[in-house]
C-alpha cells in the first residue's frame, strides 16, 4: 500500500487558541477513514488544514509525496464540504454548471470547457443516477439531491482521495444509507481513498476500515478491530462507548 497523505506533528491555531495539537497520521491508498470526535474537537480544522484552507502553525503535511505548499495536483483530491455551509444559494447555477467546477482543478489558464468535459460531467451524473436533474437549478433541489450533486462535483475529476465533511447531517436515514453505500462502492470498486468526518460513531464502522478519533489532539488512529480490543481505549472511552463504536463493525 502506498502512502497518500502524511500528516507530521501538525498544530493549528485560531488566533491564540490552539485548535489542533501535535497530530500525526499516515493515510494509505484504499483506506476508508472515519474521522470522529466531540464537537469542537478540530475535525473540520484538520481537513481544512489538509486542503490548504487553513495555515498550520507547526509540523508538515505531505500530499502524494509533495509538501502541501508545493502541491498543485488538486484534481487528485475531491472535497465535499459540509452541505450548504459555503454555497451561495441565490446563485442561479444549474447542476451541470456546478459539477463542471469540479474539473477546473485539472485545467490551466485560460480554462475552457471542451466536449470531453461535458461527457465526463454527463457520465458522472449518470453514475449517480441524477442525469435527469442536469439542467435544474441547484437551489430548487431537495437536500439529498443537492448532496448527490456535490458528490458528483467531488468525483468528476476522478480523484484518488475523497474528503467528506459530515455528509449525512442533512439526509434522512434512507438517503444516508444509500449515500454511504455509494461512497463504499467508490472505495471498494474504484479503490478511492476516503476520509469521512462523522458524528455517527456507532454507524461509521460498517463502512470504514480505520478510525481516526481526535479531541484537539490525536486519541486513536488505526483499525477498528484493534480499537475494539484496546485496553487503553477502554479506559479512555469506557466500555460502553468503546463497544458502541465498534459494535456495528463486528456485524460486517
Amino acid at each position: 500500500m502506498s502512502t497518500i497523505i502524511e500528516i507530521k506533528n501538525i498544530s493549528v491555531h485560531y488566533g491564540t487558541t490552539e485548535a489542533l495539537k501535535d497530530v500525526s497520521v499516515v493515510i494509505e491508498q484504499g483506506d476508508f477513514v472515519g474521522l470522529a470526535g466531540p464537537n469542537g474537537a478540530g475535525k473540520t480544522t484538520l481537513i481544512k488544514a489538509l486542503l490548504g484552507l487553513l495555515p498550520i502553525s507547526k509540523g508538515e503535511i505531505m500530499l502524494f509525496g509533495k509538501s502541501r505548499e508545493g502541491f498543485d495536483d488538486w484534481g487528485a483530491i475531491g472535497y465535499l464540504p459540509q452541505k450548504i455551509s459555503t454555497i451561495n444559494m441565490l446563485f442561479p447555477a444549474t447542476v451541470d454548471e456546478v459539477v463542471m467546477t469540479g474539473l477546473l482543478s485539472q485545467k490551466k489558464w485560460p480554462k475552457k470547457i471542451t466536449n470531453n468535459d461535458h461527457e465526463r460531467v454527463n457520465k458522472t451524473l449518470q453514475e449517480l443516477g441524477i442525469d435527469d436533474l442536469k439542467k435544474r437549478m441547484l437551489s430548487e433541489l431537495s437536500g439529498g439531491q443537492q448532496q448527490k450533486v456535490l458528490l458528483a462535483r467531488a468525483i468528476v475529476s476522478e480523484p484518488k482521495i475523497l474528503i467528506f465533511d459530515e455528509p449525512s447531517t442533512a439526509l434522512d436515514p434512507e438517503s444516508r444509507e444509500s449515500f454511504f453505500q455509494l461512497v463504499q462502492k467508490l472505495n471498494k470498486q474504484n479503490g478511492i481513498t476516503v476520509i469521512l468526518i462523522t458524528h455517527d460513531t456507532g454507524y461509521i464502522g460498517q463502512y470504514a476500515n480505520k478510525l481516526l478519533y481526535i479531541d484537539k489532539t490525536l486519541i486513536y488512529f488505526g483499525n477498528f478491530s484493534e480499537f475494539c480490543t484496546s485496553e487503553k481505549m477502554s479506559s479512555y472511552f469506557g466500555n460502553y462507548e468503546q463497544h458502541h463504536i465498534c459494535h456495528q463493525h463486528s456485524q460486517l
Binding site: 490548504g52 459555503t86 447555477a93 463542471m100 467546477t101 469540479g102 477546473l104 482543478s105 489558464w109
Partner: peptide
C-alpha cells in the same frame, strides 16, 4: 471571458474553489 470559470467557481463557492487550486 478568460477568467469566466474562475469567477464562476469563486463566486459560487469560494472555499471549494480554493481546493481546486483557484
Amino acid at each position: 471571458y478568460f477568467f469566466y470559470w474562475d469567477l464562476f467557481s469563486a463566486t459560487f463557492d469560494e472555499e471549494y474553489a480554493k481546493t481546486t487550486g483557484i
